[in-house]
Design a protein around this nucleic acid. Structure first.
Lengths: 210, 210
DNA sequence: CCCAAAACCACCCAAATGGGTAATTGCCCC
DNA sequence: GGGGCAATTACCCATTTGGGTGGTTTTGGG
């Protein structure tokens, strides 16, 4: 069998901390190696003595869990961090993932599910509460523009995102640069922007193109 | 109790199709309403007579599952489509999610897990095989640039992504436009680009900025 | 204490861009 | 059969941008 999964907990609430430790330590195959009440002490300690999976609370005084992950991952890129939260705040989810978390769970999960999540994270998965996963997946889907772009316009917008200019777009689409200009002008109108960079930024952020 | 979840299957392989139907139909709470061997017939039929969850094979002759989801979601934005695949191809995952799929599973899943995935999709979750979920989550994390940007440079790059120009960047950072120019020149050097649009494109695609 | 990197500033000039205006063609829908 | 829209092309002109070259000051480590 595999050796026990080494787990660490960073959580400011005393009761929750103790409860989670009990769950983890009371289960075969899991071993709660370290427990901290904040990132200030926890992160340096984990850097010294790494574990497999870290359960990190999001809302903590002093330093947020998001900053904590960023710090920790900078030193230990391979550690698997699962974020824990009470409210599924949109911003926090994406900020956490960007900072390097591999999972995101809402608190109050049944012990079995928590353990399964830890195991999944350890084996290269990304445990997420259903609603969180849906948010993440939905973020891939294109936002419908209020004033939708025509086929040609989308095509040109994609080329703009690759940094192409009037001339190269014109030759690759077999049209004149003047036509390209006209299309781009229409794109600006529809996207409500005035420069290439802004158009590209909006296009990629709103996933109008991939 | 809730009414049964209405499921449809689109899968070209006869055996797999029948097996999945058996699994779904043989389980209380699930009802395999429709079964098709391709998108050409399946999608129009589903548009006429919607279901809750669609299990869609990726690799199919005539029309791929990816094009199938795109088509289906155009008419029925609310339907939950789970993609099924044998190989966890990187491209296909993101293309599917962009096309509107809410879940992504590798084939050969134990029946219990398949059913749980269907239920999860129906209740607003996004069932994904562990490795797939990890891919998705990792896509949020910034790629380390070979030649990392300095703090000021990242700051300016972010403003470039918002479409700001020399002047507005200069005033908002309380520096001269010449300095902004100098920074941007360095950014271009490090990112190996020559224009704003290309820089913004690269920055957002590689998630150097959020 | 010194060095390298980051941050700051300036000037020149050619090329690219954005905005305005105007026109033709082909297609779909009413 | 005409009105609307996408796609196409053209021209003018002010502004912005990108590339080149040079320099100072501040700052963090070794």
């Amino acid at each position: 069998m595999h050796p026990s999964i080494k787990v660490a907990i960073i959580e400011d609430d005393h009761d929750i901390r103790q409860l989670m430790q009990l769950i983890v330590d009371g289960s075969p195959g899991f071993f709660c190696k370290q427990v901290y009440e904040g990132c200030k002490t926890g992160v340096p300690a984990l850097i010294e003595d790494p574990v497999d999976v870290v359960l990190m609370d999001i809302d903590m005084p002093e330093m947020s869990g998001i900053d904590g992950v960023a710090w920790l991952k900078e030193e230990l890129p391979k550690v698997n961090v699962i974020m824990l939260t009470v409210h599924e705040d949109n911003e926090a989810v994406f900020d956490s993932l960007c900072a390097g978390a591999v999972g995101y769970l809402v608190k109050g999960l049944p012990p079995v599910d928590l353990l399964r999540a830890i195991e999944e994270a350890h084996q290269g998965g990304s445990p997420m509460s259903p609603a969180i996963a849906r948010k993440v997946v939905r973020s891939f889907q294109p936002q419908v523009a209020t004033d939708p772009l025509s086929g040609r316009e989308t095509e040109i917008l994609k080329l703009l995102c690759d940094g192409e200019n009037y001339k190269t777009i014109a030759t690759s689409l077999f049209i004149s640069t003047n036509t390209v200009k006209a299309h781009i002008k229409n794109i600006y109108e529809k996207l409500q922007v005035h420069t290439r960079a802004e158009a590209v930024g909006k296009a990629l952020k709103q996933r109008l193109v991939k």
